[in-house]
Design a binder for these strands. Sequence first.
DNA 1: TTGTCATTCAATCAATAACTTGACTGATTG
DNA 2: CAATCAGTCAAGTTATTGATTGAATGACAA
Lengths: 224, 224
Amino acid sequence: MTNPKTEIFEQFAELARVLGQGNRLELLEHAAQGERSVERLAQLTGLSPANASQHLQVLRRSGFVRSRRDGKRMLYRLGDGPVIELLGALRRYAEHSRAEVRGIVSDYFNRLDSLEPVSREALVKRLDDGSVALLDVRPEDEFALGHLPGALNIPFADLERRLAELPKDTEIVAYCRGPYCVLSFEAVAALRAKGYDIKRLEDGFPEWKAAGLPVDTAGDSRLS
Amino acid sequence: MTNPKTEIFEQFAELARVLGQGNRLELLEHAAQGERSVERLAQLTGLSPANASQHLQVLRRSGFVRSRRDGKRMLYRLGDGPVIELLGALRRYAEHSRAEVRGIVSDYFNRLDSLEPVSREALVKRLDDGSVALLDVRPEDEFALGHLPGALNIPFADLERRLAELPKDTEIVAYCRGPYCVLSFEAVAALRAKGYDIKRLEDGFPEWKAAGLPVDTAGDSRLS
DNA sequence: TTGTCATTCAATCAATAACTTGACTGATTG
DNA sequence: CAATCAGTCAAGTTATTGATTGAATGACAA
């Protein structure tokens, strides 16, 4: 173990082991949306608070999340290393080589949205043109913690009630928490059925932020 | 567990767990050099054949390696998914956030080569100019399984004896198995001490190949 | 066919990990 | 100050994992 190479591989492996737990990956995705208390993260993932706390500490020890105290709550947010990039590489590898992943993806997601999604690059270009409207279907609190500039926030649950706010003549791009977030898939399916010209952003808010693209945090929820 | 999202995260986690073992990562690095028998891989990593075999099967189940039979030996090589990309993301994350990794790297590696390495992109450009000679310091069998076009192969152990083959007037770029392969670090240190104008390639052969750049497999070991 | 070699399988043991429970700490509120 | 709330810690249980050993397979050669 004094061999430096072995030592390095062991360090890498330790990081991989931290990601080797579904619950932790799920906590990580939620923390990637913005700061969240332990209790909230526990609710979102269905874990017991104690269990969530322990997982979060494991994630913190490896720098995947950071934490700060706010009164009696402890807020966790994503760490500042290239976490999203690592998770993206894991996702891409999984999509390539795990038949199960492809199966689940096509069963549950692609079925809902057979048209190809819009890439981040394409969206940036089209936002410059002003030829597209942005729809954020995440819950309001996640939206408040950060969103794409100019996005309109209508949580998925409120979509039916607030259809009037959506433009019928402009193309809409909907986004969500990440590439596997169901909300945007279902929003696209629902709105397309109603005749809206709508597509899905390939990935979600964390990836956008990680790419260094501008992010709004205030309640600035007008259409661009 | 019927929840598709949980299911997906569990799939991702399973892949991460496979990488969560130092010995497996080391086997993977060796398999990334080219096809290798179980026995050879066991030798290279210091594992027992049975143990190496089991690890290799775990890696195979997740597509990180492929295998084929050749007579009575079983040859393992890297799988064809974006494995190198995933390992690269893991490495970059580790370098960013693990103080231990930075420490080990600076202690054992940077000490040997304080000058910045040459990036793959820069090397491609300079190879077009013909302004640089390529030195592959890996063992001959690894070289034979694949190497950068026009590279001269002098295994590290033979360097002293074969100095005459190296140009004194051209800049040399040395490379090896990967970003943490000691051979190229030491070769650069040794040759620089003897007055050669030599730098290290930032990463190694597997990354070059994964980037889709041309690779020679024959015994074509002339200088470019 | 028999023997040999490389690899895999099966059984075992020790170590590690995840989750639960209940007690504990630290900050806020009455 | 006492009560409460959010989070953490510590101990115990169960399940999984990695390494070892020796036997079993499958390919080849005499």
